[in-house]
């Protein structure tokens, strides 16, 4: 039923999503350091996130996983007194380049948060929020987007009869899938997920993980997780961070079965963290 419509508003800053395949590097982090005021959170990190794969960021609490993730769409700009050195590029363009508007960056890089945060609006309005703020008025386009996004988020069948109901009446797992639907309604290239399952029960978690596996056909996904099993189940590549440094980044199989670093092995086998 659903067809992938093109992005509603052509954006000058935005190269259209490349759906031709190929495993070029999507996000490139080079010598990247990040500071909250005077305290340094990330130290000279380098990382390649390949296109249309799931990259998991793992590490103990406070190691900088979320900080790194939130820099991919510059969410950390909202915090007072932050600064950085080094660079992050997406498709070869620096996200800090002065002619790139942060709003158009966020349209390309969708985000799902740890705590599901639907707006106190109807399910329908939640999904099309990004289209509304771009001023899309066409009823047909909005309807199509709602159906496509909800189907992609595996929520359509559960809510198709109550799209006008408040999103706050959904269960925790449904809310989180709604947030995913909202993030992909914008047709981003990249989907950032910050511990999307940490507040969900095992069944809802399984659904989201299944969804992640489906979504990677169309999107580059970066996921932060505390759950080692989750990382091993649904990611293609894994990066292990410790105290603000990427200790090791490789295919998930290598990291979990044959880590090069002692620290990685200790963390994965549960000796600390």
């Amino acid at each position: 039923m659903h067809s992938v419509t093109t992005s509603p508003i052509p954006d000058a800053d935005m190269t259209p999503p490349d759906h031709t395949g190929g495993d070029g590097t999507c996000i490139n982090v080079s010598d990247y350091s990040f500071f909250y005021g005077s305290s340094q959170a990330l130290f000279d990190n380098n990382l390649d996130v390949p296109e249309r794969q799931v990259t998991a960021l793992i590490g103990p609490s406070g190691c900088g996983k979320s900080t790194l993730l939130r820099n991919f769409n510059r969410m950390n700009d909202l915090v007072d007194g932050v600064h950085h050195s080094g660079d992050i590029t997406i498709d070869g363009r620096s996200i800090y380049s002065p002619d790139l508007e942060v709003i158009s960056l966020r349209k390309r890089v969708g985000m799902v948060f740890q705590k599901s945060n639907p707006f106190p609006k109807s399910i329908y309005e939640n999904v099309i929020y990004s289209l509304r703020i771009q001023g899309v008025k066409s009823r047909g386009e909005l309807d199509a987007t709602v159906e496509r996004s909800l189907r992609a988020a595996a929520l359509w069948d559960e809510v198709k009869d109550r799209l006008k109901d408040s999103a706050l009446g959904l269960s925790g797992g449904q809310m989180q899938r709604l947030c995913i639907a909202r993030a992909i309604a914008n047709e981003p290239e990249i989907l950032l997920m910050d511990e999307p399952c940490s507040a969900l029960d095992p069944i809802a978690t399984a659904k989201i993980e299944e969804l992640i596996t489906t979504l990677k056909k169309d999107y580059t996904i970066v996921i932060v997780t505390h759950n080692m099993q989750q990382a091993s189940r649904c990611s293609d590549r894994t990066a292990f961070l410790y105290l603000g440094r990427i200790v090791e980044a490789d295919t998930t199989e290598t990291i979990f079965n044959n880590p090069k670093e002692k620290q990685t092995e200790d963390y994965i086998s549960g000796r600390f963290g």
């Binding site: 709003i103 158009s104 969708g110 948060f113 945060n117």
Partner: peptide, 21 residues
Amino acid sequence: PRGMREASLACGASKWQTIQR
């Protein structure tokens, strides 16, 4: 809640759109 503002900003809304909507 901060989460609601962040969700809006992450959808590509400007600050004023977030405040207004």
